[in-house]
Each structure stands twice: as structure tokens, then as C-alpha cells.
């Protein structure tokens, strides 16, 4: 499918103060491209959740936004550590977040289920020692 727009944001591990900046930029850019309403909110929430996950859990990675004629795609990829048990990770309330993340109001085990709920297509692949890739698509109504 023809790409209309693509941008990548590096996300550093444990950089709690910057967490959310990429998502704020993604939201602004999509708004400029004319994306609005419910789908913009869903992309923004899923993007923020996945960006927080990169900061809280990964050893660093990147968040990539691609806009197609009828859809928005977000891909988060990191360099590790990978998720040992994906079924557990997808469960609401299950969290391995540290105290710092919890003190900021996160780490309630809602992130991955919330990404799945907000996206129209959700795919997660993870390998311990290699990393995790999350792909989310959001359909734009005509």
C-alpha cells in the first residue's frame, strides 16, 4: 500500500521525563494531516502506552508512524529483553513494572490490553534476548 508519510522516533530506556513526547508529536502530526475524532484519540492512547512500555520495560527502541491512504500504522520495536510469557503479559492487571514507573501512575498492567482495545489490528512478536515488536493498525473512516 502506498505510504503517504513516515516518521521514526528513537525511545531511550528509562527516560521517564521524555516519555510521551513522541506520542504528543505523533498526535500533532496526524491532526495536521486531517485525522481527528475517535481514531485520533485511539492512536494517541495506544501510542502513549507503547512509548511508555519502551521506556519502562525495554533496553531502548523506536516508535514508527506510517500513514497510508486508509489507515495509520504504529510499529514499536526494541532491542530487548523480550517477553518470556506473552499470554501473561496480555492479561489485564499483570505487570512487571518497577517502582519508578508505578510512582508516576503507571505499571497497573493495563498497557498491552489497552493497546489491543484501541487498535483495529494488533500484533505482538517477542523473543527473549532479541526483543519485541508491536504492530498496530487503525482504520481511517472514509
Amino acid at each position: 500500500m502506498e505510504e503517504l508519510f513516515r516518521i521514526s522516533y528513537p525511545v531511550a530506556a528509562a527516560d521517564y521525563s521524555s516519555a510521551g513526547k513522541a506520542s504528543a508529536d505523533i498526535k500533532r502530526r496526524l491532526k495536521q494531516l486531517g485525522v481527528g475524532g475517535d481514531v485520533l484519540r485511539r492512536v494517541a492512547v495506544a501510542s502513549y502506552e507503547v512509548e511508555l512500555n519502551l521506556v519502562i520495560h525495554s533496553e531502548g527502541g523506536e516508535l514508527c508512524l506510517t500513514v497510508f491512504p486508509g489507515a495509520v500504522q504504529l510499529v514499536s520495536s526494541d532491542v530487548g529483553p523480550g517477553i518470556p510469557d506473552l499470554d501473561m503479559a496480555m492479561r489485564e492487571g499483570y505487570s512487571t513494572a518497577n517502582e519508578e514507573a508505578r510512582s508516576l501512575g503507571f505499571g497497573a498492567g493495563m498497557g498491552l490490553p489497552n493497546m489491543k482495545r484501541n487498535s483495529d489490528e494488533f500484533d505482538i512478536k517477542s523473543k527473549v534476548g532479541t526483543g519485541t515488536t508491536i504492530t498496530m493498525r487503525f482504520n481511517l473512516s472514509a
Binding site: 516519555a19 510521551g20 506520542s23 504528543a24 498526535k27 484519540r41 494517541a44 492512547v45 501510542s47 502513549y48 508516576l104 501512575g105 503507571f106
Partner: peptide, 9 residues
């Protein structure tokens, strides 16, 4: 993050 959460929503 309270502000960022508010922004997303």
C-alpha cells in the same frame, strides 16, 4: 505524565 495523559485523551 498527568498532563501528557490529559493531552492524549
Amino acid at each position: 505524565h498527568v498532563i501528557r495523559t490529559s493531552e492524549m485523551l
